[in-house]
């Protein structure tokens, strides 16, 4: 099934991640791990769990960058990264087994762990580093957009959102259908100039990043003028005749 859907999926589900409010708390990363380790992709195995060189499977990882130079001129940006469910995902087409596929219904890119031979080629084909190899199980795993949560009939409707989105305390993650121009994610993308990371690769991510808003160090508002003019004026005189009642 590594051929891509013949027609563009009717729904294009993905995330809009707001770099303006992400505080880098890793809640999305650990809640993702928690949901998915017991879900259809589970376990998200950890190796050397309590020893040196600990590492494991994570579908979502949070980076921190410094941008724009030293001191107050620059800024710090937290950058969570998980699969972007690309529209042109070579990670799917390179897969020799059909384990990797893009769902024709909603565009979610998944791995069928029963077919995967663990050749890792898909991870080589992903520029975003979004594929996660489970070295103990010998198969490739990845962000499923919580496909076993967002459609799960055993959960109440309101809980059918990806784990990372539900967890995010600063509401920096939004889930929805990019094919629907009226969805929150589409609107946010339009309003805030949502963009593709590494667009030059041509993978056409479904998910988008919303850029940090420009800092507002701002010019002084009018009140400064008052400061200047009153500087040095007769010390407390201004308060002497103020008659205010309690």
């Amino acid at each position: 099934m590594t051929s891509l859907p013949a027609t563009r999926p009717e729904k294009r589900l993905g995330l809009a991640i707001d770099l303006d409010t992400c505080v880098g708390c890793h809640a999305c990363a650990t809640n993702c791990k928690e949901w998915n380790t017991g879900g259809i992709s589970g376990p998200l195995t950890d190796v050397n769990a309590y020893a040196a060189e600990q590492h494991g499977v994570w579908f979502n990882r949070v980076f921190t960058y410094e941008v724009g130079g030293e001191g107050e001129a620059g800024r710090t940006v937290h950058f969570p990264k998980n699969c972007l469910h690309c529209e042109n995902p070579a990670c799917v087409t390179v897969c020799p087994t059909g384990a990797s596929y893009k769902r024709s219904e909603d565009g979610i890119v998944l791995v069928d762990h029963d077919k995967c031979i663990g050749c890792k080629l898909c991870s080589w084909a992903c520029p975003y580093g979004a594929r996660e190899y489970d070295e103990v199980q010998g198969v490739m795993k990845k962000c499923t957009l919580c496909v076993d949560k967002i459609y799960n009939q055993n959960l109440p409707e309101e809980d059918r959102v990806p784990a990372c989105v539900a967890a995010c305390p600063s509401k920096a993650r939004h889930f929805g259908d990019f094919a629907d121009p009226n969805s929150t994610v589409s609107k946010l993308t339009a309003e805030r100039g949502g963009y593709d990371p590494m667009p030059e690769k041509g993978y056409r991510p479904t998910s988008k990043y919303l850029p940090p808003r420009p800092g507002r160090r701002g010019a002084a508002p009018a009140a400064t003028a008052a400061t200047a003019s009153l500087e040095g004026a007769g010390r407390f005189l201004k308060w002497v005749d103020r008659i205010l009642t309690r």
């Binding site: 017991g38 259809i40 376990p43 195995t45 309590y50 020893a51």
Partner: peptide, 13 residues
């Protein structure tokens, strides 16, 4: 001794 591998969640599959 702490286990080398942590595969919590496997048993739910």
């Amino acid at each position: 001794p702490a286990p080398a591998i942590n595969d919590y969640g496997a048993h739910f599959a």
